[in-house]
C-alpha cells in the first residue's frame, strides 16, 4: 500500500495529466451526443450574452448586405399581399374560410453565434423558451434551410446546422420528385451530399433540391441547394449527388424558427401505426 502511494506520488504529474486529458475527451464525447452536457446548460447564458455583445458589434460590418437582403424579402412579401391582387372572381360565396387552417408558425430570430468551419457546427439564436422556442423546431432563412433547434434556455437557443454530422433530412429533386437523404460530409460549408437516389433517374447539373414534408420539421419546398455533380457507387444501385447549398452559412444573421402545429398529431398517428 505504501509503495503504491509512493508510486502514485512520484508520478503525480503524469496522473494529473492523464486525468485532465480524460476529462477533456469525456467532455468532447458528451458534446457529440444529443444530450448536451449539464455544464453547458449553466454556462450557456453567460457565454451567449458575451456572444450577443460581440455579434452586435460585428453586425455593423455587414449592415449594408443584411439591409439589402431584408429589403428584398420585404419587397417579395409585400408583392404577395392580398391587396396587390386584382380579383377576377366576382362571385362571393363564403365569408369564413374553412378550407384553410394554419400549419406553420414562423418566429424571427437573430444568430448571435455562428460556426461553420468545424466538423460539427452550431449556431446560437437570441430567442428562447420565453419566446416559444422548443427543441426540435426547424430553422430556415430567406435563402433556404438552416438547421434544427437543439437546446433552449430562457432567452437563447442553440441549434445544430446542416453542417453537422448528426444532421440528416430528406431532400427531393425539383424535376423528378425523387427524394434522398441530405447530409454533410465535412470540409466545405458550401457543399452537402444528397444520397440514396435511385440510379435510373435523370439528374442534371443545376437541378434544385427542396425539403420534403416527411420529417414535418421544415415546410415543404424550402430550398436546400442545387445539384453540382453526382457519382454512382458500383456496389449498389444508388446515386450520390453533391449539392451546392442554397444558404451561405458564413453570413447567417436573420433566421426564422418554424413550428409545425400539426407535427405532434402526425407523430402520434405514425407511432400508433408502428405498434403491432
Amino acid at each position: 500500500m505504501r509503495r503504491l502511494i509512493a508510486f502514485l506520488y512520484q508520478n503525480r504529474l503524469l496522473f494529473a495529466f492523464l486525468i485532465l486529458e480524460a476529462i477533456s475527451v469525456g467532455l468532447t464525447v458528451r458534446s457529440h451526443s444529443l444530450h448536451r452536457s449539464i455544464l453547458n446548460q449553466y454556462t450557456q447564458n453567460s457565454t451567449a450574452s458575451l456572444h450577443q455583445f460581440s455579434s452586435e458589434v460585428g453586425a455593423y460590418f455587414s449592415l449594408k448586405e443584411q439591409n439589402k437582403r431584408l429589403n428584398e424579402e420585404n419587397a417579395r412579401l409585400r408583392s404577395s399581399l392580398k391587396q396587390n391582387y386584382f380579383s377576377l372572381y366576382t362571385q362571393v360565396d363564403s365569408l369564413a374560410d374553412t378550407l384553410m387552417a394554419r400549419q406553420y408558425i414562423f418566429r424571427a430570430a437573430q444568430v448571435v453565434n455562428n460556426s461553420f468551419t468545424k466538423r460539427d457546427n452550431y449556431i446560437t439564436l437570441n430567442k428562447g423558451k420565453l419566446h416559444g422556442i422548443k427543441p426540435g423546431m426547424g430553422i430556415i432563412c430567406d435563402q433556404g434551410l438552416v438547421g434544427v433547434i437543439k437546446d433552449v434556455s430562457n432567452h437563447y437557443s442553440t441549434a445544430i446546422t446542416l453542417l453537422h454530422s448528426r444532421f440528416l433530412t430528406s431532400g427531393a429533386l425539383e424535376n423528378t420528385g425523387n427524394f434522398g437523404t441530405v447530409s454533410w460530409p465535412g470540409y466545405s460549408f458550401r457543399f452537402a451530399t444528397l444520397s440514396d437516389l435511385p440510379s435510373q433517374i435523370l439528374i442534371k447539373k443545376g437541378d434544385a433540391v427542396w425539403s420534403t414534408s416527411y420529417s414535418g420539421i421544415f415546410p415543404p419546398y424550402t430550398p436546400i441547394g442545387t445539384v453540382e455533380d453526382w457519382v454512382q457507387r458500383n456496389a449498389d444501385q444508388f446515386v450520390e449527388a453533391r449539392i451546392a447549398l442554397a444558404v451561405d452559412f458564413s453570413s447567417l444573421r436573420h433566421v426564422e424558427v418554424v413550428e409545425n402545429l400539426l407535427l405532434p398529431e402526425k407523430n402520434e398517428l405514425q407511432e400508433s401505426s408502428n405498434e403491432p
Binding site: L13, F17, I23, S24, L27, T28, S31, S115, K118, Y122
Partner: peptide
C-alpha cells in the same frame, strides 16, 4: 503542475465559447 493547470483552464474557456466540448482543453493540456 502549474503548466498543466493553465493549459487545461485556457483550453476549457475556449471550449465553452466555441461549443466544442473538450477538444481545446485536450490540446492545451
Amino acid at each position: 503542475g502549474g503548466l498543466l493547470f493553465w493549459g487545461f483552464i485556457s483550453g476549457f474557456i475556449v471550449d465553452l465559447f466555441e461549443d466544442t466540448g473538450g477538444i481545446h482543453s485536450f490540446a492545451t493540456t
